[in-house]
Amino acid sequence: MLKQAIRRSVDIEQSGLRFDLTVSSATEGDSPLNHELEFWERGFSPADGPPEVNLSVLNGFSHRYESTLQRDVSGAIKAKQKESLLQLMSHIEPNIKDIHILADDERGHGLFVEYVGEGFIPLSTLGDGMRRALHFASSLMKARGGVLLIDEIEIAIHTSVIGAVFDWLVDACVEHDVQLFATTHSLEAVDAILAGRRESLSDIVAFRLDGGRLAKRHRGELLHRLRFGRGLEVRR
C-alpha cells in the first residue's frame, strides 16, 4: 500500500546534491503517511523499488529437482563461475573433476558428475547429500554479493558431517561475500554448527521464536553457552 501511495504522488526535484521529496497518500482522506525512508548508495527511485540484491532461496526439497540444479549450474557457468563452483565441490568430494550437463537417453539431458578415474556419474544416482551440497554450492554462486536463504539446513546432511558442511558453507560465503540465513529444527545441527565455529562464534547470530510471535536474538557466544554450558533446549 505504501509503494502504491508513493508511486501515485511523489514529486522529486533534484538539483545537484539536493532534492526535495513530497509524499502524499493515494487515497483522499487517508491519515498522513509516516514512514522511514532509506536512501541507498546507488540512489533512490520510488518508481524502481528498492535496489536488487542477489538472492538464492533453498528449501528442504529443492535439491531434489534436477531442473533446479541444472538451472543453477548453468547460471554459474554463464557467470564464468564454474571453476569456483568446482573448487567448492572439491572441498566436499576431492575426487570431483568436473560437472557437466549432458544428453541423456532417458531424460533428454541431465547433470553428470565427472569423478577422477571413474568417468561420468549421473547426479540422479548419487546420494541426497551430494545433491544438497551441489545445490548449496550452485546457489551460493548465484547469491554472490547478496543473500543465501537455506531452509532446514540439516536436511540430507548426516549429523556426523553437518558441522564440517556448515564450516565449508560459511567459509565459502565469506569468500564470495554472501550473507547466509539458515533455519533449522535440529539440535544436532545447532550443536554441530556451534562446535565447528567455536573460535568464531561472533560470526553467528540466532533468532529464536519466543512465544510464537516475537523473535529473540542471540549472539553466537550466548547460544553456545545455552547449549554447552547449560544444556538447555533452545528450540521452540
Binding site: 547449549r227 554447552f228 554450558g229 547449560r230 544444556g231 538447555l232 533446549e233
Partner: peptide, 19 residues
Amino acid sequence: HPLVPTEFPIDDDMAARVP
C-alpha cells in the same frame, strides 16, 4: 521448563554439575 537442562553431560564433562 526452558530452564531445566535436557542434556547430559554438560559440555561433555561427566563430572560437571547439572545447572
